[in-house]
């Protein structure tokens, strides 16, 4: 039981890291541009598909990722310039609708260009095995790679935001947008850059998960809602909040899926636990979100000045 628990904890951490990569971009775009981007999940999907094609083209997953990153950055940049830029003045409702439209377009375009069947990405041999972390705790190498690269990216973001000029602008933007533009900063370039950064983070998340789940149409639509739950729970605009909430939700969701049924069985006869378990574990993250918002309507770590 305890080894299983540890393994599930690692699995939860891996999901959490992935959610963080998505949520980081969302919360950046939200915090600075006040823009709700439902289509963030489409960038995640595009990351997976572009990386899949490049992996087959170059013959190596690693090169696939290396070449896919700039492509996703360009797509994100174009997305901002062509559509998103014209929506900053509109309200959240318009954002939701326009980006909902983008989801429809992206899903259809992906089906038209790659077909409906999705792509399985082969991994090099040194990534597709397992390692024994502790005695009896055997864990897939690639999932460890996801955890470690995700944590590295998180550390990089922390450095970027805390110690660089760009980070200073981002923090300033999140707390007071007007002030930043008053400082004579080229706002439109900053916004486009931040948006492209968010796109790359989402794309990388897609590239990392694709070798596990395959690149499939609509893969982003399933996870984007969870990513929104993360930034809402964490507090919109807060990178720290996004990180903590992502790890928390990743672990809770995984442990829920794994143990909730057994816990229910203790209190109830097996038959109803059998169906109530999966249903309740699907609802778990939404329940957490509702509780958090009921107690703290601004999320766990709201940015200090708004």
């Amino acid at each position: 039981m305890s080894t299983l628990f540890l393994i599930q904890l690692l699995n939860g951490l891996q999901l959490g890291v992935l959610l963080f990569l998505l949520a980081a971009g969302l919360t950046l775009v939200f915090g600075i541009m006040d823009f709700v981007n439902l289509a963030h999940g489409s960038l995640y999907m595009l990351g997976a598909f572009v990386c899949a094609s490049l992996t087959f083209f170059t013959g190596s997953f690693v090169w696939g990722v290396v070449f896919a990153i700039p492509i996703i950055a360009i797509i994100g940049y174009l997305f901002e310039v062509l559509i998103v830029r014209h929506l900053y003045e509109s309200n959240h409702l318009d954002h939701v609708l326009a980006t909902f439209g983008i989801i429809l377009i992206a899903d259809t375009l992906v089906q038209l260009s790659w077909g409906p069947e999705g792509i399985a990405i082969p991994l090099p041999d040194y990534l597709s095995g397992q390692v024994e972390i502790l005695p009896d705790i055997i864990f897939p190498t690639f999932r460890l790679l996801i955890i470690s690269s995700g944590l590295l990216i998180a550390a990089g973001l922390y450095w970027l935001i805390t110690y660089t000029r760009l980070g200073m602008l981002i923090r300033a933007g999140a707390s007071n947008r007007t002030m930043v533009s008053a400082l004579g900063i080229d706002i439109s370039t900053l916004f486009a850059g931040v948006f492209a950064l968010g796109a790359v983070l989402a794309g990388v998340a897609g590239m990392l998960i694709a070798p596990i789940t395959e690149a499939t149409i609509g893969m982003g639509n399933d996870i984007i809602i969870t990513a929104f739950v993360v930034i809402i729970v964490g507090g919109i605009g807060s990178m720290k909040g996004a990180f903590i909430a992502a790890i928390l939700i990743g672990i809770i969701d995984t442990l829920g899926r794994s143990f909730l049924k057994d816990i229910l069985e203790i209190f109830n006869e097996s038959a109803s636990a059998e169906t109530a378990g999966p249903a309740l574990s699907s609802m778990l993250i939404y329940i957490i979100m509702a509780i958090v918002l009921a107690l703290r309507p601004q999320g766990l770590f709201p940015p200090k000045v708004r």
Binding site: R143, T213, R257, P278
Partner: peptide, 16 residues
Amino acid sequence: LTTWPGQLDFSAELAK
């Protein structure tokens, strides 16, 4: 019994 059709990551179930 895993969530359908959303769930594609079966890490928790495979570990069990």
